[in-house]
Nucleic acid binder design. Structure first.
Lengths: 134, 134
DNA sequence: GATTAATACTTGACTACTCAAGTATACTCA
DNA sequence: TGAGTATACTTGAGTAGTCAAGTATTAATC
């Protein structure tokens, strides 16, 4: 029955909805957190297109997500010196600090969200999720 | 390290993004499918509030999702005879037929999305997802 | 039987995207 | 070296939700 696969994906959507609700911390939404995490530890900055690909978003979605983060001075962008079409996004020092705090708070929330799973099960879940549609 | 739990949830978000992209069928989005599935097999109709709870949406979200489906005559609503505040949503005959077709098509897409997982792993994934934040 | 409180939505204003079309720059190769 | 194509965004219009506040109705209590 192919509906079983659909049910698995419906369960995925439901779990995602719960996660999104639980993970707003320090004024950063889960979506913003998701975008900021790959900016940690880059000196040179990262291209929006790269981020889009990595996060399964469109380039347009990244553009739109970066804007309010720039306004709040969490992220800054410069032009790519090697390619005038491209830009490079990176955390500001304040943004970096905020993200560290947010991730710590998010860690607590996430741990609570996953409290019914053992660490092994969490790893297992993560492995299985990575196989979905990739 | 609490960040591990966050990573699991980031993997969840990425998998969700892939699923949403893949599951648009017969003019119904994954979100619409999600809303319609619990309406299958109800004669009397179901309350928006109930649906909201079941799908981890707000009542407001359900109101907004139902509207275009009513306009397209996929869903119809009547007032609850026992409670004038409430309404009852149900599939129209045409909606029911459309949903069946959509679910079949969705089944194929979902199966393809999950092709790298065995049936046992899919079940396992579903079980783990149901434990997230519940 | 009149308040008061709770429930079941609905609506307005906002966030988080999507797709399609547009702009600017870079790459390819005859 | 210039024409054509591909890449890296950006923008406009629309969908899918959120939260806070408002309306109508029911339930609870004194």
């Amino acid at each position: 029955m192919p509906t079983d696969a659909v049910e698995t994906l419906l369960a995925l959507a439901a779990a995602h909805a719960r996660a999104v609700r639980a993970l707003e911390v320090r004024g950063l939404s889960f979506a913003e957190l998701r975008l900021l995490v790959p900016l940690r530890g880059t000196q040179t900055g990262r291209r929006p297109t790269e981020l889009a690909h990595e996060l399964h978003l469109t380039a347009s979605g990244v553009t739109r997500a970066l804007l309010p983060l720039e306004r709040r001075h969490i992220v800054e962008r410069r032009r790519d010196p090697d390619d005038a079409r491209a830009s490079l996004a990176m955390l500001t020092p304040a943004g970096s600090e905020l993200l560290d705090e947010a991730l710590e708070a998010a860690g607590e929330r996430a741990t609570r969200l996953l409290r019914r799973l053992s660490v092994g099960q969490q790893k297992q879940l993560q492995r299985l999720l990575e196989e979905v549609g990739s």
